[in-house]
Amino acid sequence: MSSLQHLHMDSTKRKPLLKEHTHVGGEPQTLPVKQVHTHPRESNGDENASVYFIGTATTIIEWQGTRILTDPNFLHAGDNVHLGPGVSAERLTNPAVDLHELPALDCILLSHYHEDHFDQKVEASLNRLFPIITTPHAKKCLTSLKDEPFGRVTELDFFESVMLHTDNEPTPGTNVKSVIRVTGMPGKHVPPGALAAANEYLQAVPPTNGWLVELGHAHDTATGTDPEAINTGYRIYISGDTLFVDELQEIKQGLQDYKIDLMLVHLGGTTIPGPKMPLVMVTMDAEQGLKLMHLMDPGVTIPIHYDDYSVFLSPLSDFKDKVDEEGWHDRVVYLDRGEQYKFKVRAAEGA
């Protein structure tokens, strides 16, 4: 890792998500869960963490009382977003919950500064001191807003990490505490070559990150936590709005023999300017999504970001067909908006 930053998540001192937020501390609001899914092959009923799918790339990852919101987009069917010069998209679906209905949260993971991942309503409503982890480009945008810049934004470039320290008590008889490490992962929103060179000049499509979210345990000491000393109990890889590019090989190489337990893959085959004139694809379609499964070999894959906007060319049914042809139906969990996947974070060794 080229750098390590630290964020301390204290539920009694949570910053409110919204400017006019009412549930700071105390009992959080309850998410409306339509259906709960577990591992298709290995569930023992002892799951202790979850992913809740709100819509597009918006999810809530929860473990040990810490909640991370990814790519907040809460527009409704019929609303439009601006995606670049001359390019807009209409939302076709509704989110599972509205922004004001969310439970108490600890931070936001923002893969890139694009309106279908951070819409104008979100930008206008958020508390300027709510913690956001994002790309260097998005940090520059968020902290330089003319009227109300955001004041607590952590930037992560590829393979840079931040430790989220929870306020949970150590395991009895030890000084082992739960921690979450978030690491920026490579991704490319624009195909390499002439288009990428043109985008570097025009800055039409923003740079994007994927994420590695590691849930685990570490010894709590006065000098902090050694990032290499984390006893990881679960690894989540979030692809972000990337294409299947050579740089993704670096992720697999960096993991070495470590296993990805869960992959959240952004699909949809997003096209610019749109499906009626598909000049360029900027997110993975079904075929690329299957290639990513081959490369990363996760225990479970959950597709997200596949049918919420009019610029998506590759429907979820295409990915399902590819998965079934591969004989991998028991390696994929499909979540509808408002559904939840529960999983088990392994306990610390010796705890």
Rank of each mutant, 00 (worst) to 15 (best):
D116G: 02
H165G: 07
P95E: 03
S144T: 15
S178Q: 15
D79L: 04
S161E: 10
Q120M: 09
G84D: 04
V190I: 14
A104Q: 14
H189K: 05
H189E: 08
G151P: 00
P85I: 07
D157I: 03
E214Y: 15
E169A: 14
L142T: 02
K139A: 06
L164Q: 03
H137R: 07
G173C: 04
V87F: 08
C107I: 12
E155Y: 01
H82L: 13
V190A: 00
A204M: 13
G210T: 07
E90R: 14
A204W: 09
H82A: 11
C141L: 13
M185W: 08
E90F: 05
F158Q: 11
K177L: 06
V153G: 03
D106A: 04
G78K: 09
G216E: 01
L92F: 08
P186R: 05
L110I: 00
K140W: 09
H137M: 07
L92K: 15
F130V: 09
H112V: 03
L142P: 02
G193K: 03
Q203N: 14
L215K: 01
T135M: 04
V81R: 04
N175V: 11
C107Y: 04
A196C: 07
N80W: 15
K146I: 11
V122Y: 05
A124K: 12
L129H: 14
L110K: 00
F159E: 09
V176M: 15
A196P: 01
H165L: 14
A197S: 11
D157K: 10
P95M: 06
K140H: 12
T154Y: 15
G78Y: 10
H100R: 10
D157Q: 07
P136I: 06
L145C: 00
P186H: 06
P103S: 06
K140F: 10
A197W: 08
L156F: 11
V97M: 11
C107N: 08
T134G: 04
L99N: 03
K177G: 02
L109H: 04
F150Y: 15
N127F: 00
L156R: 13
P131W: 11
I108Y: 03
L102F: 06
E101A: 13
T134Y: 12
R181C: 11
V81D: 03
L99Q: 09
D167S: 15
N175S: 10
L75A: 00
F159L: 05
E90Y: 01
F118K: 06
R181N: 04
Q203W: 05
T143D: 02
K146T: 11
I132C: 01
T166W: 01
V190P: 05
P170V: 08
H189A: 10
H117Y: 09
E101I: 06
H112S: 13
P131R: 07
E155N: 04
G86S: 02
V176K: 14
P103I: 09
L212G: 06
H112G: 13
S88N: 12
P149H: 04
T208C: 12
H76I: 07
L142Q: 06
D98N: 13
L102G: 05
A204G: 13
Q120F: 04
P172V: 10
T166H: 00
L92D: 07
V182F: 12
P206V: 00
P85Q: 10
P172Q: 08
S88W: 14
G193W: 08
K139M: 11
L215I: 11
H114F: 13
G78M: 04
V176Y: 08
K121H: 09
R181M: 15
A96D: 12
Q120G: 01
P206S: 01
